[in-house]
Structure formats: C-alpha cells, structure tokens
Amino acid sequence: MHEIYQAGRHVLHIQETDGTFFSIIHGAKLAIISDTAYGIGDNRGFIEAHINTPYIVINTHGHADHVQGDWQFDEAWMHPADQPAYERACSRIQRISTFYQYAVSCGVPGERKDAYIAAPRTVIHPLQGNERFDLGGVHVSVHHFPGHTRGEIGLLVEEDRLLLSGDSFSDDCFMFWDNHDTLEALQESLKKALHLPFDTYLGSHTTKALPREFLSTVLENAEKQEIVPGSEEVILGVKTLTIQAEGPLGISKIRIPEG
C-alpha cells in the first residue's frame, strides 16, 4: 500500500494508496517522520520496517490528510497555532468520512473501522518553529511558515539542502481551507524561506522537488494577486478564485476565497 520515492540522500517520501504522503528523514541515531497522511495503511509498521533508530513524528500542519494517521502513534509535535484545525480533523465525524471515502475503497477490512474512527490518543507536543534536531550525520531545522495554515511549518534537511515545505509553497496552493492565513502572511513566509540555504523544496503532494528559484514566482503571485478571469470554482464546498503568475520555471496558482 506504499510507494517509495527517494527525495534526498536522507529523505524517503512515501505515498499511501489513497494518494496522501508522509516522509522519513533518517540519521544514524534518530529519524523524523514528517506527517502521517490519512493513516489508512499500516504507516507505523512501514516506518519501523525501514528504519532502525528511534523516531519522532512532526506534523507540518493540522489538516486531515496530514494528521489523521497520528492515531497509530503515541506522540507527535505540531505548532500550537494549528491545534484547533488538528482537533477538527481528528474528530469522530471527520474520521468516519475518511474511512468510508478512502479506506473501504482501498481494501481496508471493515473490522478496523472502530479503531480508525476513534479519537486518537496521540499526545500532541508544541513546536515553537525554531527547533533544530541532530539526527546523527544529518541536521533538521524547523521553520514556521504561516500561509496555507496559521501553524504551517517546514523542515530543512541541512545536509541534503532540501526543504520539506508542507503545503504553503505548492505550485497550486490552497489559501481558503480550515485555519488558513492571509496572503500577506504567505508573502512573509516566502521571503523568510528565500533566505534559507536549500537548493530544492518538496511539497506534501508531489513526488518531484521544485527548485528554490520557483519560490520567487510564488512570491510574485502572492504580491500581485492577479485574478484569472473566469476562475470561479467551488472547491471543498468553498467558492474560490485563482490568482496566477508565470515565471521561467512554471506557473504558480493560489486559490483564494471569493469575496
């Protein structure tokens, strides 16, 4: 149920059958698990079969497709600004919706339903957004990047010069969903990121890293805010518009709430 992509020398990016992702950053003495996806498959079993060190779980933000898999783990770390979104995402009604929307179609046995839809017992610890971890031969720093959500964080894998950026810097960024921040906040996060030492960055919903230079196009888009004519669309029940900018490395789209 898992497909593995080698995102960096120390980073595995894993796609579940339902299309969501989590990542493993592994060092000689510790690993970081970035997000837990929906947790439809046995993510914990997969992780423990692929690393031989202790590990900690860090959620980039509180949306369901990043945190519902926390139910398989005793502890996780997250920025407190996303705690309300986390609690909504892990509510019983949201977990029931995920189970019947994805788990059944992915062949998860019905007898796992009660365990899946129960509220997770995971203990959530707060991240300040400025931590740095020594994993043994690789260092990972935490950076607060509000935009897609107020508590979004990124993880800079220093030796790989790779930034795991969550959802804030996607080439098709949603800025309308639960606990989203402002375009001005996204602008500041992009400026902050452009001062960090990395060559490529990997969003949560892609298997291919983008060059850091593409962030300049995303920043231009967030600043100019040029609405695409006829882009009105209902996404996840929200009426949205699209702002767009094109640079030498491609097109940046940002979906914003209408009005």
Results as ranks from 00 to 15, higher is better:
residue 137 G to S: 02
residue 167 D to G: 04
residue 189 S to I: 07
residue 37 A to Q: 06
residue 234 V to M: 13
residue 239 K to T: 05
residue 212 R to L: 06
residue 142 V to E: 02
residue 102 Y to I: 04
residue 121 R to C: 09
residue 57 V to A: 06
residue 246 E to F: 09
residue 237 G to Q: 11
residue 190 L to A: 10
residue 191 K to M: 13
residue 1 M to S: 15
residue 52 N to S: 15
residue 78 M to T: 01
residue 105 S to Y: 12
residue 226 E to I: 14
residue 109 P to V: 03
residue 216 S to Q: 13
residue 205 H to M: 15
residue 168 S to P: 09
residue 34 S to Y: 12
residue 65 D to I: 07
residue 229 P to T: 09
residue 18 D to N: 10
residue 90 C to R: 03
residue 105 S to H: 10
residue 14 I to H: 03
residue 97 S to E: 11
residue 239 K to W: 04
residue 26 H to A: 06
residue 74 D to Y: 06
residue 212 R to G: 01
residue 109 P to G: 10
residue 106 C to G: 04
residue 128 Q to N: 11
residue 116 Y to W: 11
residue 31 A to Y: 03
residue 21 F to V: 04
residue 85 A to L: 10
residue 48 E to S: 13
residue 108 V to Y: 01
residue 40 I to P: 00
residue 95 R to N: 12
residue 32 I to V: 14
residue 241 L to F: 10
residue 218 V to G: 00
residue 39 G to N: 07
residue 214 F to K: 08
residue 203 G to H: 10
residue 11 V to S: 00
residue 66 H to W: 04
residue 98 T to L: 09
residue 223 E to M: 15
residue 235 I to V: 11
residue 55 Y to H: 13
residue 146 P to W: 02
residue 81 A to V: 01
residue 24 I to W: 01
residue 23 S to T: 02
residue 113 K to D: 02
residue 201 Y to Q: 08
residue 177 W to P: 00
residue 189 S to N: 09
residue 99 F to K: 06
residue 102 Y to E: 12
residue 112 R to W: 12
residue 87 E to V: 00
residue 44 R to D: 04
residue 136 G to I: 01
residue 72 Q to T: 05
residue 115 A to F: 14
residue 247 G to E: 08
residue 70 D to F: 03
residue 198 F to G: 04
residue 105 S to W: 10
residue 129 G to H: 06
residue 251 I to Q: 13
residue 141 S to I: 05
residue 127 L to D: 06
residue 166 G to R: 08
residue 241 L to A: 05
residue 9 R to H: 09
residue 59 N to S: 13
residue 203 G to A: 11
residue 246 E to C: 09
residue 50 H to I: 06
residue 132 R to T: 09
residue 19 G to K: 07
residue 8 G to I: 11
residue 257 P to K: 14
residue 218 V to A: 03
residue 202 L to P: 01
residue 48 E to Y: 05
residue 244 Q to L: 11
residue 27 G to V: 03
residue 234 V to T: 15
residue 9 R to S: 14
residue 62 G to L: 12
residue 125 H to L: 08
residue 84 P to L: 13
residue 144 H to M: 07
residue 172 D to K: 04
residue 45 G to V: 05
residue 11 V to K: 01
residue 205 H to D: 11
residue 15 Q to M: 14
residue 254 I to L: 15
residue 72 Q to A: 08
residue 61 H to P: 01
residue 197 P to W: 08
residue 134 D to C: 09
residue 247 G to Y: 13
residue 136 G to S: 06
residue 132 R to L: 01
residue 174 F to H: 15
residue 252 S to Y: 12
residue 11 V to H: 00
residue 199 D to S: 13
residue 36 T to I: 03
residue 19 G to L: 09
residue 22 F to Q: 03
residue 46 F to N: 10
residue 122 T to R: 07
residue 216 S to P: 00
residue 212 R to A: 14
residue 58 I to E: 07
